[in-house]
Amino acid sequence: PSAALVARHAFLAVGGFDERLSGYEDDDLFLRLLCAGFHSLHVEEPTVLRRSHAEAASRSIRMERSLMIYARKLLAVFPDRPQEGRFPSRDLIAPRFCRTLLARWAMAERAGNREAAALARAGLRELLPHLGPHRRRIGAVILHIASMPVVGGACLRAAHGLRQHVRRTSRP
C-alpha cells in the first residue's frame, strides 16, 4: 500500500489490516474494501519506486507463511459452487497461488533455502486438491519429483515447466 490512500471510515469498516498477514495484507485489504462496496480510483502515473534485493521482505519465510494464510482465507471466502457453475477456487485462487509457490520453490532451491523450499512444497500439496484434474495431475508429478533423492536441476526444470504450462493454459 505504498501509494494507496484509504478513507479512515472505509478502513475501519472492513476491520483494517489482517494482522496475521505479513505480505498480501494489501491485497486482502483492497479485496475486502471492494467486496464491502467501496470504490477505488487508479492513477496511471507511477508514484512509488520499488527496489528488489535478496534480503527483501517479499522473499522472507514470513512472506511464505503469509502467502498460505491468504490463500486459505480466499479459499474459505470464495468456495467453488458447482451447482451455480462457479469455480473461483479451482479456476482462479488455486492456480494463482500454485504459480507463485512454484516460482518461490524454484528460487528457494536455487538459493539453497531448504525451509522456504519445504514451505512452498507443503503449500502446493495443500492447494493441489483445489485444482482441476489436469493441473492436479501435473502438480502431483512435480511434487513426486521433489521427493526423489536427487532433486536439484530436475526439480527446478519441472517446476519451471509446470509454471509455463499453467501460464499458457490459464490465459483467456
Rank of each mutant, 00 (worst) to 15 (best):
L41M: 11
L128E: 15
R99Y: 05
S60Q: 06
R20V: 04
A116F: 05
L143Q: 07
M63E: 11
G123N: 00
H53Y: 15
E55T: 11
P149G: 11
L12G: 05
S60H: 02
L127D: 05
M148Q: 15
E126I: 01
L156N: 11
L21N: 01
Q164A: 15
G139T: 09
A111C: 02
S170F: 00
E115F: 04
C155L: 14
A154P: 06
H42K: 11
D80F: 01
R99N: 07
L67M: 08
V48S: 04
S60F: 06
A140Y: 03
H39K: 14
L131A: 01
H165F: 15
S2E: 12
R50H: 12
G161L: 10
A56V: 03
A56L: 01
G15L: 05
P172S: 08
D28G: 04
L31I: 11
R59P: 01
G112D: 03
L34A: 13
G139L: 11
L74D: 04
E126P: 02
L162R: 06
I142M: 12
G152L: 06
G23S: 06
R65W: 05
H42D: 08
S2R: 11
R121S: 07
S66L: 01
G85Q: 08
D28L: 04
G139I: 02
V48H: 08
N113A: 10
S147W: 03
A117G: 09
E109C: 08
V151F: 06
D80T: 01
S170K: 07
D91I: 05
P149T: 07
F87D: 03
E84F: 09
A111E: 13
A117E: 10
H160L: 12
E126D: 09
G152S: 07
L21I: 02
A4I: 07
V77E: 13
P133D: 04
R137Q: 15
A122E: 11
S170T: 12
R99C: 05
L31G: 03
L128F: 01
S147I: 05
A36K: 07
S52T: 13
L12N: 12
W105R: 14
G152N: 05
R86Q: 14
R125V: 06
M107A: 13
L162M: 14
F11Y: 15
H42L: 09
R104W: 02
C98K: 06
P149L: 10
E45S: 11
E109G: 00
L92F: 10
P129Q: 00
E55C: 05
R90E: 14
A76L: 09
G85H: 04
G23T: 02
A103K: 10
V141P: 00
P1Y: 09
L74T: 02
P79L: 00
S22G: 09
L34M: 10
H9D: 15
E44G: 02
R167L: 14
I145H: 03
P79H: 01
R81C: 08
R171T: 15
C35N: 06
S147Y: 06
A56Q: 09
D18R: 09
A158L: 01
R50A: 13
S58N: 10
R167I: 12
L67P: 04
P149N: 07
L75K: 04
D28F: 03
A54R: 15
G132H: 09
E126R: 02
V43A: 04
I93T: 10
I93A: 03
I69V: 14
P79F: 02
G85L: 00
L75W: 07
A10P: 00
A154V: 12
R86Y: 10
